[in-house]
Design a protein around this nucleic acid. Sequence first.
DNA 1: AGGGCAAGGTCAAAATAAGTCAAGAGAATT
DNA 2: AATTCTCTTGACTTATTTTGACCTTGCCCT
Lengths: 159, 159
Amino acid sequence: MNSLTKVIGDYIVTLFDDSEDSEVVLSRKDLARKFGCVPSQINYVLRSRFSPEQGFLIQSQRGGHGFIRIMQLRFADCDEYAEHLEDLVGNAVSEQDARKLLARLQEREAVTPRERLMAEVALRNQDENGRALFGLPAYKRDTMRAELLKKILVSLAMF
Amino acid sequence: MNSLTKVIGDYIVTLFDDSEDSEVVLSRKDLARKFGCVPSQINYVLRSRFSPEQGFLIQSQRGGHGFIRIMQLRFADCDEYAEHLEDLVGNAVSEQDARKLLARLQEREAVTPRERLMAEVALRNQDENGRALFGLPAYKRDTMRAELLKKILVSLAMF
DNA sequence: AGGGCAAGGTCAAAATAAGTCAAGAGAATT
DNA sequence: AATTCTCTTGACTTATTTTGACCTTGCCCT
């Protein structure tokens, strides 16, 4: 016996299959009517089946012509990826290596150009503060750079 | 099905594309007639889609030869836009206000959810370092937060 | 100068649609 | 049988778009 939640979840998955695209846009109200349930049931489906932890990102808009957009993120296997990053970045990383890694990730379309730029801005900012404000030695800045880079990438991967 | 607001907004964007110029001049009344809506709908489109946060400035004139001019801030105008961000962010900003601003920018689609998340991660990282590592007082962290936020937003604005 | 008309501006109400939260119902586990 | 987890429901909240009534501004014409 399938729960309604499972039925709706499966239906949304078929939408992804059909569209062969990494995103699906739907109307909460219409979906609810289609399955004869209350609208907030859709929220439950999304919470329980299309969460960030499961590799989906949700955008929505209320009001007239409102919508719900479900985006499938590229990294389905978050934990593994996060672990991979730990190895990749290590606990210290030079400015050059950090930049190389970001360039590679952009090439693979794991991050957008804007996201890459933003990461570089944040890293450079931390670096300059560390040097100019606190007079940190290079090795300390390398570890802090690694930490920030990992935080950024892991959050993107898992969210 | 798109909202009228989106249709009109998209239309204005095509005007920018066509003219390959950084400004567009239009008549509120004519636009409203073209899309079969009430004139004040145009004001709503401008407010919600062509706000300063999204890189546009609006000038208008009433009376006999009235017009609405939408100017897109471009690379050349970057200084001006950066100045505007200075005003928006100020030279000190609380964690809450920073988050509110980012939420607003995301709602207006000036930043993606991932970008917003990344910005929040970078801000929180700096904050924690400032507190735990360097014992910075709140006011100092507020100014550093403003600096970083502005750097991030300005860099995205230039993209 | 003053009045008329032709813009554009403001504001708020109505219409529409999504989000939250918690209580209740069912299933599964111990 | 009790407990715990999942699912369903609905009342209440928040957000966006659409519409219209009324206000302001500026040109033009006596």
